[in-house]
Amino acid sequence: MGNTNSLIGMSVFLLIVIAALLAPIFATHDPVQQNILFRLQGPSAEHWMGTDAVGRDIYSRILYGARISLIIGLVSVGLAMIVGTAMGVLAGYYGGKIDQLVTQITDVLLAFPSLILGLMIVAILGPTMPNLIIAIALTTVPQFARVARAPTLSLRERDFIQAGRALGYSDLRIMYRHVLPNIFPEVLVMGSLWLATAIRVEASLAFIGLGVRPPTPTWGGMIRDGFKNILDSPWLAIFPSLAILILVFALNMLGDGLRDTVDPRLKGEK
């Protein structure tokens, strides 16, 4: 069951990645080209998902918007994964003061819901792509620190880690070569699940006006624009919402499936 789920999730995710990469080929129109004569048109053969309030093609904008969502999601989660995992492994392996410090930082960051923390940081730094990436990464770092720390704590006592110490390996080598490969599956599962959250947070920030600046198309921003015409032209908001839904759902399926494969104890539990 887990495998089918993760396979479906993986396929959908890859399709979206390909669509975003090849957006210039798949797009039917220029995503920022305004055409006031064709504004607020419903789905048609010319405009598959209709046009927005200034006549831009929604289908093409969704394709280009996927790029923003994926770049911000992947880079921020990638960063958080590297930093968070390093923090968690160091804390778990050394214990003591380092562990206390990491745990306290983690607890403070976890006390804020990711949207609120992201909102604060973007509001302070300004809504540019690098700032959004930093903000979302910061909200995700403690998740990885936690996921990496717990198994490191138990691995540290395992005989093969002790054997490494007895063989005169450096701490860095033990952490990198012996701890990391053994916790990596769990970190990866966390990565796919938090990628979904990161994409959702980016869209939410864009929806409240803290996304990448217009005219660059973002899904959250499109929903925000479409909201003004929600009663007479609902497709403006519906299509980008569906895009977010499908991507987030696919990533969750992928993550859940992976988790079942990695941790057989959770199999069947819902």
Binding site: R158, D159, F160, Q162, A163, G164, R165, A166, L167, G168, S170, R177, H178, P181, N182
Partner: peptide
């Protein structure tokens, strides 16, 4: 100590826990 450990080695009780499963 790292140098000394070259000369003293240890064999563990549990052969399932003493080898890195990913290596």
């Amino acid at each position: 100590l790292r140098e000394l450990r070259r000369h003293i080695q240890i064999i563990f009780q549990d052969p399932y826990a003493s080898l890195n499963p990913k290596q």
